[in-house]
Simulated assay, not measured.
Amino acid sequence: MSETSQLKTTPDEGAESQKGKKRDRSASEERLIAAGTEIFSKHGYSAATTKMIAKKADVNESLIGRYFDGKEGLLLSIIERFIEDLRTEEPPYPAQATLYDELENYLLFKLNMKDDRDCLGRIIIVQCLTDNKFRKKALERIPIFTDPNLLKRLETLRDNGKIPATEDLEGICQDLEAYIHGVFLFDLILSETPEKEVFARARKFLARYTRGID
């Protein structure tokens, strides 16, 4: 084989090697996120250790520092992933004919996911209250978002004349998301208010909120 031929094959081999490394890293990150979610939920943030997480994920402990900049970074990545899953999940109920009905179904759908969010929610609250640096990082990386699925449904209602054309649809989505976060964190977790009471309050809130819009 000539020297020229060897030079031509080397870049291809290098590219394949880089792709393989990226796949390996991606697989390790996924295992660490899954393991971290389980360990944090089971033991809490303080009691969970990187050794426990790495053992559960079956990877070298040093990868937590390399890929996530430590235990705190891993928790933030887990929260980001969880919120992204919430953003992309299509509501299971059919599109509704009025703004009130659409928001009511959406709100109840999200609040009924309490069991899935409970452990992480408690961990977030504790860390934000006890660790100011974590709180700042969480606020930077986990903003209030607009759910694209809800926004699409509101746009359909507006196109059908059910919402005035002048209404800020993204603002409605953000208002509802902020309300859901508040109910979830303060009513369902901190106060442990019965769900029946929480849902009754939510319906009253929506009735007032949609008055003049719907």
Rank of each mutant, 00 (worst) to 15 (best):
L139M: 14
L151Y: 05
C173F: 00
F40K: 03
L76E: 00
K42E: 15
T210R: 03
K22D: 11
P194S: 08
L99F: 04
L103S: 02
L108A: 06
D101W: 03
A48F: 01
Y179A: 05
S17A: 15
H181D: 14
F82G: 01
L76A: 00
S46F: 02
A165R: 06
R135N: 08
Q127S: 07
R81F: 02
Q18V: 10
P194R: 06
D175Y: 04
N105S: 14
S46C: 03
E84A: 14
A97M: 06
V59G: 06
I83R: 01
G70A: 09
V183P: 00
L157T: 08
D85M: 11
R81E: 05
A27Y: 07
S77N: 12
L74C: 01
L176T: 03
R122L: 07
S28C: 03
K22F: 02
E192C: 04
K42D: 15
M1F: 13
E72G: 01
D85I: 12
Y179W: 07
I79N: 00
R117S: 02
L120V: 12
D69I: 09
A35Y: 01
H43G: 03
A47V: 09
C128S: 12
E13V: 12
K152R: 15
L107C: 10
Y100I: 05
E13I: 14
A54R: 00
K19S: 09
E29M: 14
S191L: 13
A47I: 06
T166K: 11
S46R: 11
G212K: 04
M52I: 08
P194D: 11
I83N: 01
K21A: 11
F40L: 08
E16R: 13
S41H: 08
P91C: 12
L154K: 03
K21W: 05
Q96W: 01
E13L: 13
I125G: 03
T88C: 08
E61I: 12
F205D: 05
A178H: 07
R117T: 04
